[in-house]
Structure formats: C-alpha cells, structure tokens
Nucleic acid binder design. Structure first.
Lengths: 121, 121
DNA sequence: CCTTGACTTGGAGTTACTCCAACCCGGTAG
DNA sequence: CTACCGGGTTGGAGTAACTCCAAGTCAAGG
C-alpha cells in the first residue's frame, strides 16, 4: 500500500505519516525496490490508532511512550491501559472546559442584543 | 495595575499578555514613568474576553479581527456577533469530535480487558 | 551601598505539523 | 527513443501560539 492510500485509510496526511516515522512512532515500514514506503494492513491499523490518539489531543511525547510500550510486548498492557485511562480523564476535563467556554460565549453574545436588532453594549 | 496582577485577574500569563500586545490585540496600555505597563480595569476586562476566546480555540488571526472591529466602534456589533455565533458553531463541532474520540478510546481500553486482570490483545 | 524582586526588551526554543524544492522512478504517447 | 506525467523520496524552511531566557533597569528595604 502506497503512502497516499495509507493516508486515506487512516485519516492522517502523507506528510504527517512521514513525520511520525521520523519521530519513531512507527515500526520499520517496508520499502519497495525503488525506495517507496509500502504499508501493511497492520501498519495502517497502528496509524489509525495514532490518528485517534492525536485527534483526542494526546501530545506526541506521550504517543511515543505508548508506541514504545506497544513494541515491548503484551506485558506492558497494564501500563498502556493506564495511559489511555488517564487520557480519558483529560478528555473529560476538556469537555468541562468546553462547557464553560460555551457558557461564557453565550453570555457575551447575549450582551450584544437580539439578532438583527441594534441595541445595548 | 502591574502585569502580574493583570495576569492573575484575566487568566493569561504575563508573557502571553506581552505577546498579545505585540500582536496588536490590545489598545495602547498606559506606562508608568519607569516604563512598566499599568493596566486599567477596562484593559483587564478586555484581556479576560481574549482569554475566553483563546481558551475556546479561536485562532489569533480571528481574535485580531475581532479586536479591530471592537476598536472601530459600536456599528460593528452585528459583525462581532456573527464572529461569536460562528465560533459557537465551531465549539459544537469540537464537542462532537470529542464525543467520537471518547467512544474510540473506550473501545480501545475495553480491548485491553478488565482492570487488573491480564488477558486478551 | 547592596541586594531583592518586579519589571523591560529582543530573541531563541518548542510542538506538531505543513509546505516546498529538488530529485528519482515507472509507464504511456508521439 | 525521448518527453512527460503522476506518483514517490529527502532535507529543510515556515507557521502558530506561545514560553523561556539573558541582559538590563528601577524602587524599596536592611
């Protein structure tokens, strides 16, 4: 599978995939004779997981740690689970922040008055 | 009011306040005789609004536009309201993304098996 | 008078990309 | 056979939004 296809399949851009490889977050990816990357189905699944971790705001540093654990074998599963659980907690907090922002924004919008009528502050 | 106090009051860091000033997102801030910034209550209120806009993920570019409109006078209120309404819509979308991330993450965590027991993938 | 603590500026460093120039390689069209 | 196209490759520069730091100034306290 070429990089553009892998990109379409996992949700990351080709540039980002190359960047993740440079950043040691991928296992060795096979190359064709002319030097092009050739992604396996397994590779694509890993990229998809990375896509979701990143999408959910995990910093690359943490993703790198997660990657190294995953490469170390199944005995690191408890640690990996912990990372994901902690990360879930982060998401919960981000949601709370989002709620607060929405509330503040609503107040500000209200202070500008009702739609299409000129009034107030 | 000194920069550290203003920072404490609005939620931004002193460095960020200076950066926002450089980036033309503050009106001219008064200086004391020795050159230190001296923030008014009005300044702090504006900084607080900037804090919330930024916190909710508005890019500086957009904040700059909003700032310029605000400085132009009350006739720009409809446009400013539009910016905030559009931004609310962004927040709604971010929330949806957050929901999807949480779901994916939950599936992955579940795939590692129940807490404190070693099993599965 | 010296130190402490808060401020000042300009500039370098950081994160996570994103874009670009310059190049190679395989396949078709003329 | 050569010309060109659409992929791929690398290294490196650019971006956003800070964040940190060095080097300097200034006012107040002991």
């Amino acid at each position: 599978m070429r990089i553009s296809e892998a990109a379409a399949a996992c949700g990351l851009s080709p540039d980002t995939i190359r960047y993740y490889e440079k950043s040691k977050m991928l296992p060795k990816v096979h190359r064709t004779t002319n030097g092009n990357r050739d992604f396996s189905q397994e590779n694509v699944e890993w990229l998809t997981l990375l896509y979701w971790l990143r999408e959910s705001g995990m910093p690359l540093k943490e993703m790198r740690r997660f990657t190294h654990l995953a490469q170390a074998g199944p005995e690191t599963i408890p640690e990996r689970r912990k990372i994901l659980l902690d990360h879930s907690e982060q998401l919960r907090r981000r949601r709370e922040k989002l709620d607060r922002c929405e509330a503040v924004l609503a107040v500000k919008i209200a202070s500008y008055g009702a739609p299409d009528q000129e009034n107030q502050t």
